[in-house]
């Protein structure tokens, strides 16, 4: 009955791209740590072990360590992913970790996705725009919504703003002002929401240029690397068709 996975013991060579911009003497360099692999070990466990036992200055971000908060996006062997739910048994002996590109580096594996995402939210106004939101009658029965629509909205809202789609996007890597799949997906989410009163013309003003939906070159890295398996390419294609039709 025991289904907890068991793996062979081996030594992992974890190379981390290290750099502390606050320290003028710091140069970006790779540093390799040896860690004994263990059953059900995740990169969350491995990195904490390194920090506790080998190098207390190693910097990285974890919050929920359960794959739902989006804090621990990093480049794992070349591709972006959530470190907390990456099991070492799925990786080769040599593991290379680097911070997500496209975001301001805080130190080592920690990047400022929060600042980027807040900027994106302000720019795309990712909230329900409706008249009289402050004067809602809280006692009245809520407006009905088709169950299927609610489910669809949730599917789009599962985005955790981890930044993997930005790191996976060639366009975003070249153009810092590109809002990326995370931003475009949120626009489609609010466009789909009948509670948001904005028109397509208003959405066009937000994403109707090369920093928005027309900047996307359909490289599909976003969809292929999204840890939440969001239908990002489909959403961007949808938004593009709508925006062209404005």
């Amino acid at each position: 009955m025991n289904t907890i996975p068991v793996s062979q013991q081996r030594t992992l060579n974890i190379s981390v791209l290290r750099h502390n911009p606050a320290d003028p003497d710091s140069e970006p360099h790779m540093q390799t740590f040896q860690v004994e692999d263990a059953d059900a070990m995740t990169l969350f466990v491995a990195l904490n072990l390194i920090r506790e036992e080998q190098d207390p200055s190693l910097h990285f971000d974890f919050v929920c360590r359960a794959g739902i908060c989006g804090s621990c996006g990093m480049i794992i062997n070349g591709r972006p992913g959530l470190a907390c739910r990456t099991l070492t048994r799925d990786l080769p002996d040599d593991i290379t970790l680097a911070p997500l590109p496209g975001f301001e580096l805080i130190a080592d594996l920690s990047v400022n996705t929060g600042k980027w995402m807040r900027g994106m939210a302000e720019r795309l106004e990712t909230w329900v725009h409706a008249q009289g939101l402050e004067q809602i009658d809280l006692s009245a029965i809520e407006a009905p919504m088709e169950p299927e629509l609610a489910q669809q909205l949730y599917e789009l809202e599962r985005c955790i703003e981890c930044g993997c789609c930005i790191a996976a996007c060639g366009t975003a890597q070249m153009r810092e002002d590109f809002v990326g799949a995370v931003g475009l997906n949120q626009v489609t989410r609010f466009r789909l929401d009948p509670r948001d009163e904005r028109t397509d013309a208003q959405f066009y003003e937000l994403v109707g240029d090369d920093t928005g939906v027309f900047g996307c070159m359909t490289l599909l890295g976003c969809q292929d690397m999204c840890p939440k398996d969001l239908p990002l390419a489909t959403q961007i294609a949808f938004l593009r068709r709508r925006m062209v039709a404005v």
Binding site: P101, G170, T218, L219, L220, G221, M225
Partner: peptide, 11 residues
């Protein structure tokens, strides 16, 4: 750099 690291077909 991005392309070399990602080894992602569509990119």
């Amino acid at each position: 750099t991005h392309m070399a690291a990602m080894r992602h077909m569509d990119t």
